[in-house]
Design a protein around this nucleic acid. Structure first.
Lengths: 153, 153
DNA sequence: TTGATTTAGGACTAAGATTGTCCTGTTGAT
DNA sequence: ATCAACAGGACAATCTTAGTCCTAAATCAA
């Protein structure tokens, strides 16, 4: 399963929240504008993140979304799998395997090993890690367009 | 990019050829029957493998396909990428990158690392390796349904 | 040389996934 | 009550996957 835009947008949205510092809220509207992600699509994605317990939502005036944990406690794997379901490099590896072959076949085993590597990379990277990396990149090449998103009103 | 059936079928088809031993030919018809792969789809897949130089085709009566190299010299990466194009875990990593962000962003870098791991796993596994692994699996769980494909006529 | 066999290649199609949009709730603050 | 903001479902456009089908080209054999 390829990492889709949904997963990518989810990570970008959370990075936006993480950059705001602890317990700061952001509106879907603001995140969507600053990160250039279609608003209604991002709203849908954040629903998954709320269900997964990565962010908490607050409705009504003064509401928005906030991280439930420190950025250093949120892995990219968790975020992506909350949005896309378990990463599966091939149909053998789906939660409900779609494979005519018996378990344990040589090719399925290979796919499994490759997939484990991918998951390990994502499991070993937190939102905080990404932010640290960003800081070491030349400004023009950063993923983030606005380092100072509009202040919480 | 997820490994599609085309890639999977390609590897299975080549494994079939590899199991026949050196310089033994097989017809699309036979491979397709023995491996339970739709014939016209497999034919299309093998066209890519011919172009990539992994197999050679012979037309006419007594024709078919044969490997151009030893199974131990053909990696799974080569096969899959011949069929599907370069493995790209995300649109940032496509041959023609489809990504609004500048090069070198933290998230794209992460995707690249994950992708490199996948490619390394596939690059480190040859058709011969898969056949060796098969032999260590209990017979009922093998990918292969017929260890003795119809003899070359 | 005629015909049977086998791959080559392009056009086409059905089904499913992705990437959204839109509308109607529901919740909370003032 | 009313406004602000998220929740959730239905819907739709586009793209990808997973094929099919048909005609052509190459090869061999009678």
């Amino acid at each position: 399963m390829q990492i889709t835009r949904a997963g990518e947008y989810g990570v970008l949205g959370l990075l936006h929240l993480a950059r705001r510092g602890p317990a700061r809220m952001a509106l879907i509207d603001d995140i969507s504008r600053d990160e250039e992600i279609p608003k209604s699509f991002l709203a849908k994605i954040f629903q998954s993140l709320v269900k997964a317990g990565v962010v908490q939502s607050y409705r009504g005036t003064g509401g928005g979304f906030a991280l439930t944990r420190k950025p250093s406690d949120i892995t990219v794997l968790e975020v992506i799998e909350a949005i896309e379901g378990k990463i599966a490099l091939q149909r053998c590896q789906l939660e409900v395997p779609d494979c005519e072959h018996m378990e344990g076949c040589a090719l399925c085993g290979l796919f499994e090993r490759a997939q484990d590597r991918v998951r390990a990379v994502f499991a070993g990277t937190t939102l905080a890690d990404l932010i640290t990396t960003e800081a070491t990149l030349p400004a023009k090449t950063r993923h983030i367009r606005k380092l100072q998103p509009a202040a919480f009103k």
